[in-house]
């Protein structure tokens, strides 16, 4: 155990700090004793083979899964002490892989759903009939480039447009940290790059901390400040994206021979 007093001084300055974090499913540990410190405004990507624990680590930081050991702090506040709902939503927003819009609601209403943590009960219900805070949502839709499709049902939008709506929703939610789980892996390469560039530049201009899990290593290298290589729930490397070497990647993705124990 390292001395706690040393890290206490640093922690308030950090957007995310993860210490000794472990999560097991049955006997396999999805995340194993992970340490991670992320300063505000950084764009950081988790890379690694499938099953490496990228998604679980994101879920642990989002507070949607609770750890077996270790702790997560967001801006110096212990995650387990934050109330789910409004309090947590003001700190952390999530962009998922796909299929997380409500298909029968318009793009506009889906974006406004980002306000549900902040709105009162009546305002939420009334807004379904007569949208509240519409200019806010329209600005967000404009920023992601699909203001013209605001009234379209989300289910009728293309995959790329749906991800743009999801990004607009998190913009309207206005958290300090965005967690994105494979945000573009369901899109074709050209569209994937557009959407990822949009997400990264929005995070940058709003000075948000962005943590994403990435499948495509080339995109991760080009768009993120820092890469964290995960394998079998452990951190294999953690360095600026430009410093990641061929050897690092080979070690990250090498096929492991089946061996007992």
């Amino acid at each position: 155990m390292q001395p706690r007093s040393a890290s206490l001084n640093v922690r308030p300055a950090l957007a995310v700090s993860v210490e000794g974090l472990t999560k097991r499913f049955g006997i396999t540990s999805a995340v194993n004793d992970v340490e991670l410190f992320v300063p505000p405004g950084q764009a950081i990507a988790f890379v690694g083979p499938s099953g490496a624990g990228k998604t679980t680590l994101l879920e642990l930081i989002a507070g949607s899964v609770s750890p077996d050991a270790g702790r997560v702090s967001l801006y110096g506040q212990d995650l387990s002490s934050l109330k789910p709902g409004r309090e947590l939503a003001s700190l952390v927003g999530v962009v998922a892989q796909q299929y997380d819009l409500v298909p029968n609601l318009s793009a506009l209403q889906n974006v406004l759903a980002g306000r549900l943590g902040a709105w009162g009960a009546w305002k939420s219900i009334l807004s379904l009939l007569a949208p509240r805070d519409k200019p806010l949502a329209m600005r967000a839709l404009e920023r992601v480039g699909i203001a013209g499709r605001a009234e379209e049902r989300a289910g009728r939008l293309s995959g790329g447009e749906q991800q743009r709506v999801a990004i607009a929703r998190v913009v309207v939610q206005d958290p300090k940290i965005i967690l994105a789980d494979e945000p573009v892996s369901s899109l074709d390469p050209a569209r994937a790059e557009d959407v990822l560039a949009l997400l990264v530049s929005i995070a940058h201009e709003r000075k948000l901390t962005l943590i994403a899990s990435m499948h495509a290593i080339d995109l991760a290298t080009r768009y993120f400040d820092r890469l964290v290589g995960l394998r079998n729930g452990r951190i294999l490397f953690d360095c600026p994206a430009s410093d990641v070497t061929r050897t690092d990647l080979n070690a990250l993705y090498k096929i492991e021979e089946e061996r007992g124990g």
Partner: peptide, 30 residues
């Protein structure tokens, strides 16, 4: 009702009541 959109609403800070109005009701309305 499919879970993914509901989870997204919860992540945005919605209570179960709001998840009902914004996620469940629209999904089953037709």
């Amino acid at each position: 009702v499919p879970e993914a959109p509901l989870r997204a609403l919860r992540n945005a800070g919605a209570s179960e009541w709001r998840v009902f109005w914004y996620g469940r009701l629209p999904a089953v309305l037709p």
